[in-house]
């Protein structure tokens, strides 16, 4: 394998480029893509490489997502850029009532090869309208698939798989990981939707995470290693369909579980995972399942407030000690 170090942004652009070459029905639509290359520069070079297939829109999120849907229903494979995950709210009817339901409601007549891509997450003092993690809403909505990877390798493989999928995908990427780097093979590959991956093997406790929390989880695991605690980090990558097999396998090995996401704990995806583990694997558990996530408040602007609200490595370490019934030193 020929590995290169790419940023998440580069990995994503590469995936898009390859898929656009491979399939002329793929196009990108959203605000500020052409001159600006996307607000995070994620599309730089693509408008020139594929004239007419990277389309700038007015600020009309309802019509942008709806246009993606209509094009998906009529033979295209749109990739919709929503600027910020927060703006999904401006297209909620399209995403929840239309995109998610059309295939089922019409008895399976239609395919919806549509990707709605949006940066989410906090940590940049972007305040309450530009910092949310809203994945739980969409996991809760039947008909959608939800993806939220962390590493360039996964980003590239999952973008490609999402574009090729005939189902609607909500693809979240945390703003803070755009420039983080990782190895990416030069050869073509796909990562199947719905498959988690163990990013660090361990035997004492399973830390289930996704998106930026995987980075925090790996850091926490490294620190705990010094204390003789062996953490297994399971990166979900795809949130729905949920990879229950991988979760069950890890839980059956470690018997202890911590679930981490940046979204607020209340009714977050961790609640679902936790409920399911206790329903199906109660006898395997040696300790209560704990969850780490944000406080249930909008993301505040001021750095000390924001730091307080969103979880990081420290909260993970604290929770793991608690799960193991050990004192922190």
């Amino acid at each position: 394998m020929n590995l290169r170090e790419l940023t998440n942004t580069e990995a994503m652009a590469e995936a898009l480029r390859e898929e656009m070459i491979r399939d002329p029905s793929v196009f990108i639509i959203g605000e500020d893509l052409v001159a600006h290359g996307g607000i995070f520069g994620q599309f730089i070079g693509l408008p020139q490489a594929f004239p007419g297939r990277v389309i700038d829109t007015p600020i009309s999120e309802t019509a942008i997502v709806g246009a993606g849907l209509g094009a998906a229903l009529t033979g295209m494979r749109p990739f919709v850029d929503l600027h910020f995950a927060d703006f999904t709210t401006c297209a909620m009817d399209e995403i929840v009532n239309q995109v998610a339901k059309i295939r089922y409601m019409f008895g399976g007549q239609a395919k919806i090869p549509l990707v709605i891509w949006a940066p989410d997450g906090a940590g940049l003092s972007a305040a309450a309208h530009h910092s949310q993690s809203l994945e739980a809403w969409f996991i809760h909505t039947p008909g959608l698939k939800v993806v939220s990877p962390c590493f360039p390798y996964d980003v590239k493989g999952l973008i490609k798989a999402s574009i090729r999928s005939d189902d609607p995908i909500i693809f979240f990427m945390h703003k803070k990981i755009f420039s983080s780097k990782g190895p990416v093979p030069a050869e073509e590959y796909l990562i199947p939707l719905g498959k988690a991956e163990i990013k660090r093997k361990g035997k004492d406790v399973t830390l289930i995470a996704y998106s930026i929390m995987v980075l925090h989880a790996l850091e926490a695991a490294k620190e705990l290693e010094k204390e003789g605690i062996d953490v297994e980090v399971l990166d979900l990558r795809t949130l729905w369909p949920m990879d229950w097999e991988s979760i069950a396998e890890s839980v059956t090995k470690t018997h202890r579980v911590l679930i981490a996401h940046e979204a607020c704990v209340t009714c977050g995806f961790g609640a679902e995972i936790s409920a399911r583990i206790q329903e199906e694997l109660f006898d395997e558990l040696d300790a209560p399942i704990l969850r780490v996530g944000a406080y249930r408040v909008p993301i505040p602007f001021s750095p000390p407030l924001e730091r307080f609200v969103i979880p990081g490595k420290e909260s993970l370490i604290k929770s793991i000690y608690k799960i193991l019934g050990k004192e922190m030193n």
């Binding site: 305040a127 309450a128 309208h129 530009h130 909008p298 505040p300 602007f301 001021s302 750095p303 000390p304």
Partner: peptide, 16 residues
């Protein structure tokens, strides 16, 4: 500047 004496006690920032 995100200070507690701000209009929104630092919760809003420039855009809010």
């Amino acid at each position: 500047l995100g200070k507690s004496t701000g209009y929104c006690k630092g919760k809003g920032g420039s855009m809010h």
